[in-house]
């Protein structure tokens, strides 16, 4: 299977969050950008590209971010137990989303240039049987 298609040109921030779609389907929020998001939807049926929904999103940061927005499905692809979905935000950018992106930009390691990712140490080890 090929890597999932991505349509968004804006930089995407990897995030961890939950979403409810139309008060029914549950999903994980995988990334977020100004234009849209990637969701992993817990469903056996694919969402239809072009279809619009209301998504209630909760991102888990030190200060959780909650927002509700209209989204339209751009692409969908089966990924194991999920359907991964690329969605485009509909309507004007909400202040909560702008604020969330700004905050994630500040906390995200990639955006801090040469600073080490805070709060993480990494060790590289051989396998025991090596």
């Amino acid at each position: 299977m090929a890597e999932s298609p991505e349509r968004r040109q804006a930089e995407r921030l990897r995030v961890f969050g939950r979403a409810r779609i139309d008060d029914g389907l549950l999903a994980y929020v995988r990334d977020l950008s100004e234009g849209g998001a990637r969701l992993s939807v817990i469903t056996d049926d694919p969402l239809t590209p072009g279809q619009s929904y209301v998504a209630r999103v909760c991102l888990f940061e030190a200060d959780p971010v909650e927002l509700e927005c209209g989204v339209s499905v751009v692409w969908t692809e089966r990924v194991g137990v999920f359907y991964d979905v690329g969605v485009r935000f509909e309507g004007p950018m909400q202040d909560a989303l702008v604020e969330a992106l700004s905050r994630l930009e500040r906390t995200g390691g990639e955006r801090r240039g040469e600073e080490p990712i805070r709060g993480v140490r990494v060790e590289l080890l051989p396998n025991p049987e090596s």
Partner: peptide
Amino acid sequence: QRTRFSFEADVSSTSICDC
């Protein structure tokens, strides 16, 4: 072959995802 991460309790979710 083996990678071990240590995450402090205040690490951001964005950093976890990046790692």
